[in-house]
Structure formats: structure tokens, C-alpha cells
């Protein structure tokens, strides 16, 4: 049973489509604004259609998977599909992103960005200690200066502001 399910994990995609489709349908049915003469279609017709489309596609996809069809995983020059998916790396990277989001308001971009770059290289398997953090700091600081001064995009400097500002 578990093997059967694992080989058909694509049914999960179908389930997700169904779920999203139902949410879209319910959300548009709950809407209060009706169509008027100046807007014959109203704000809910198109979402209703998209929701119905999602539900229909969920059913069609499930039928396709059950009759032996499967989506082809995307290849690429750095992609080796013969090895099983490395979940640990992906989760680590996701964790680094969440940590960065939390760190920006506290530490500012130069430091949070350094952590982001270094964390990502670490998650991807690089362990070169003086080099990785130095490159991370260099990239982060350069980007911050470039964005803040040249492009006029406001990135918070954090505590380092005092040092460089």
C-alpha cells in the first residue's frame, strides 16, 4: 500500500488542486457584491470559473495518474535525477530563508544577508570556513551599499549603520 502510494505521490498534487479549487469556489460563493447593470459579470463569475476549472483538472489529473501517467521531473545541467531528492538540503534552505525574514528587522540587511548567503552555501554542502563567510559578507555588504546609495532602494542597515553611516 505504501509503495503504491509512493509511486503515485502525484495524487497529492491532484488533492491540492481539488482543495484550492474548493476554497476558490467557496470564497466566491460567499462574496456579497452582486453583478450590476454596469458590471454584468460581477466580481465572482471569473473566480467561480477558475475554481471549477481547478476541480475539473484535479479529477482529470487523478484519472491520468491512476491510468499510469506521470509528470516528468524537470532536468537541468546541475540536476541529477538518478539520486533521490535530498530533503535535508531543501528544508535547511527553507529554514535559512525563514531565519533571514526574522533577522532583517533586528540585524539589518548587511548582517542578515551575510547569514542568508553563508547559511545557503552551508546547506548546499560547502564547508570552507574562512572563505564562505567572507564571500557572504562581501556580497551582502556590496549589495546593500549598491541598493541603498546607487539605486535608492531602502534596505535597513541595522546596527552596522553607525559604523558605516
Amino acid at each position: 500500500m505504501t509503495v503504491w502510494l509512493r509511486e503515485r505521490s502525484e495524487l497529492g498534487v491532484s488533492a491540492l488542486l481539488l482543495l484550492v479549487g474548493l476554497v476558490v469556489v467557496v470564497d466566491s460563493l460567499l462574496g456579497s457584491v452582486a453583478a450590476t447593470s454596469s458590471d454584468p459579470l460581477g466580481p465572482h463569475a471569473v473566480p467561480l470559473l477558475v475554481g471549477a476549472l481547478l476541480v475539473l483538472l484535479a479529477v482529470l489529473l487523478a484519472r491520468d495518474v491512476l491510468s499510469g501517467g506521470h509528470g516528468e521531473a524537470e532536468g537541468g545541467e546541475d540536476v541529477d535525477l538518478t539520486v533521490p531528492a535530498d530533503k535535508r538540503t531543501v528544508l535547511l534552505l527553507a529554514g535559512v530563508l525563514v531565519a533571514t525574514a526574522a533577522a532583517i528587522p533586528v540585524l539589518g540587511w548587511p548582517l542578515a544577508g551575510t547569514g542568508l548567503f553563508w547559511g545557503a552555501t552551508y546547506a548546499l554542502g560547502s564547508r570552507s570556513v574562512p572563505r564562505d563567510p567572507l564571500i557572504a559578507a562581501g556580497v551582502s555588504l556590496t549589495t546593500w551599499i549598491l541598493f541603498d546609495t546607487l539605486l535608492g532602494v531602502d534596505l535597513p542597515g541595522g546596527p552596522l549603520m553607525g559604523v558605516f553611516g
Binding site: 534552505l93 530563508l97 540587511w109 542568508l116 545557503a120 552555501t121 548546499l124 560547502s126
Partner: peptide, 17 residues
């Protein structure tokens, strides 16, 4: 590792900006 860390880094800078 540098290449893909760089992609993630610039993606975050862009989204934040």
C-alpha cells in the same frame, strides 16, 4: 554552492525591496 546561494540571496533582496 556559491551560485545557488547567490540566486537565493538576490531573490530575497528583490522580494524585500
Amino acid at each position: 554552492p556559491y551560485l545557488y546561494a547567490g540566486i537565493l540571496f538576490f531573490a530575497c533582496v528583490g522580494a524585500y525591496a
